[in-house]
Amino acid sequence: MTENQVGAEAKVLVLVGSLRAASINKQLAELAVESAPEGVALQVFDRLGELPHYNEDIDTEDVAEPVRALRAAAAAAGAALVVTPEYNGSIPGVLKNAIDWLSRPWGDGALKDKPVAVIGTALGGYGGVWAHDETRKSFGIAGPRVIEDLKLSIPSKTFGDNHPRENAEVAANVREVVEKLAAEVN
């Protein structure tokens, strides 16, 4: 995990739905961490690829260490920012798997009642809207409090060959989402 500030008041867990090293969504997460306002610490959980597929039979006291780490990071956070692409018109499997692990124990998962916002980028003219809507739906059922009006779906052609931080409008929009999400932390 990386953190942009030590001892900050509002801790926000960042989950990225892409495992690809050169992912633009990972770059958006970097931008969110870099642009977080004072008093807000964003922590990127970069181990989603290590989670076993959710299976209730292995969700025991001896659950795999990456699952324990994810649940601990979620429990320590006051909110979550999800940054995700769209795969085949829907949510990436690695992200859905993380949601399933975070939803347990049912009705008392580590993100229960905590605010969650979903942003991201994808190919196509809508920037991943379907995946973002599906992600909000899944998290809403899993227990967090999804902040429906915090939306940012950006067509990836917006960036060309540049890092998202090089687009002033995108940088401002990401910072605004992070500020509003942090304001939702009790």
Results as ranks from 00 to 15, higher is better:
T2N: 15
E3C: 06
E3T: 14
E3F: 09
N4M: 10
N4P: 11
Q5A: 14
V6F: 12
G7W: 02
A8L: 09
K11R: 15
K11T: 14
V12E: 06
V14F: 07
V14P: 02
L15N: 05
L19R: 05
R20T: 06
A21Y: 12
A22C: 12
L28S: 03
L28N: 02
E30P: 09
S35W: 06
S35Q: 15
S35F: 05
A36C: 11
E38F: 04
G39L: 11
V40Q: 11
L42A: 10
D46F: 01
G49W: 09
G49F: 09
G49S: 06
G49I: 07
L51Q: 11
P52V: 10
H53R: 14
N55M: 13
D57T: 12
I58P: 02
D59Q: 13
T60K: 15
T60F: 11
T60M: 13
E61V: 14
E61Q: 15
E61D: 15
D62I: 10
V63I: 15
V63G: 09
E65K: 15
A72R: 13
A72L: 07
A73W: 06
A75E: 13
A77W: 04
G78S: 01
G78P: 03
A79S: 09
V82P: 01
V83T: 06
T84N: 04
P85D: 02
E86D: 08
E86F: 02
Y87W: 12
G93H: 04
V94M: 07
V94P: 02
L95Q: 02
K96R: 14
I99F: 05
I99C: 04
L102N: 05
S103C: 08
W106H: 13
G107K: 09
G107E: 07
A110R: 08
D113K: 14
K114R: 04
V116K: 01
V116P: 00
V116D: 03
A117L: 02
A117T: 01
V118M: 04
V118Y: 07
I119P: 04
L123M: 03
L123K: 00
G124Q: 00
Y126T: 06
G127L: 00
G128R: 03
G128N: 04
G128K: 02
V129H: 03
V129A: 08
A131F: 01
D133C: 03
T135L: 06
T135S: 11
R136T: 03
K137H: 15
G140F: 08
G140K: 10
R145A: 14
V146C: 05
V146Y: 05
I147L: 15
E148Y: 13
D149F: 09
D149N: 15
K151Q: 12
K151D: 07
K151M: 09
L152S: 00
S153W: 01
S153M: 03
I154N: 00
P155F: 00
S156A: 14
S156P: 04
K157Y: 12
F159H: 09
F159L: 12
F159N: 11
H163K: 10
R165T: 13
E166N: 15
E166H: 15
N167M: 10
E169N: 13
V174D: 01
R175M: 08
V178D: 08
E179S: 14
A183M: 13
E184A: 15
V185R: 11
V185S: 10
V185T: 10
N186Q: 14
